[in-house]
């Protein structure tokens, strides 16, 4: 089987590897290690956020109330849905079903784009509500409620956290698109489908980050 694979993909395994198993093991471990890096990357934001939340509980609870929790909730469902379809694509890759890989990935990409769309709609609403620090943050809400100065810290963290998450989403969407393109060209088979699995790992990770971001920002509405 490995000989057949070598014929199909002239550079597989790559010259530094002895066999295909070693290559897929290395690639998978590489992605896991990279995800460990990513955990710490987002960890900085969570650490700072929770430290400030303990210091300014009222301002942060008000900040959470100023966000549209239902939009965040819809987005959570959308993203979990996209992860489901990525999982189906990986399952299809294991059995070498090219058409099902492409179909599931395209649905996942569509849901991912939808997430980004909802996210940017939210940003627009927040701009309207004068919630963007240094740009138009107003100490009075449109309903006439006063806002604490420290709510700006909340909003800064909100934009940085969701912004970095969205950036990871966009990278992930590009990765999924490339994988879908190669799958359509018939690059993957039951014997060689590791890139699909690795792209899936990354996508699930981005999804998982949102699972922590969403309750942290939207649901802690009481001081």
């Amino acid at each position: 089987m490995s000989q057949l694979t070598a014929l199909e993909h002239d550079s597989y395994p790559a010259e530094q590897f002895e066999d295909t198993q070693q290559q897929s093991l290395a690639a998978t471990l590489g992605m896991w290690t990279f995800l460990a890096t990513e955990v710490l990357f987002f960890g900085v934001l969570f650490t700072g956020f929770y430290m400030y939340r303990m210091r300014w509980p009222d301002a942060f609870a008000d900040g959470a109330k100023d966000l549209k929790w239902y939009l965040g909730g819809i987005n959570t469902a959308v993203l979990l849905g996209s992860s489901y379809f990525v999982a189906l694509a990986v399952e299809a890759a294991r059995s070498g079903d090219r058409r099902r890989i492409v179909r599931n990935l395209l649905i996942a990409i569509a849901l991912g784009v939808m997430f980004i769309g909802i996210k940017f709609t939210e940003y627009g609403i927040e701009y309207h509500d004068h919630l963007v620090p240094s740009l138009n943050f107003s100490s009075v809400s449109p309903e006439g409620q006063p806002r604490a100065t420290q709510e700006q810290i909340f909003m800064t963290y909100y934009f940085v956290m969701t912004g970095f998450h969205a950036l990871h989403m966009i990278v992930g969407l590009c990765v999924l698109a490339v994988i879908a393109f190669f799958a359509r060209r018939g690059k993957f088979s039951a014997a060689y489908h590791n890139p699909v699995e690795i792209a899936g790992l990354y996508w699930h990770f981005v999804d998982l980050v949102w699972v922590f971001v969403f309750p942290t920002l939207y649901l802690l509405r009481h001081p």
Partner: peptide, 9 residues
């Protein structure tokens, strides 16, 4: 924007 600035919390 305020992150580490003590003047704004």
């Amino acid at each position: 924007v305020p992150i580490f600035d003590p003047n704004r919390g």
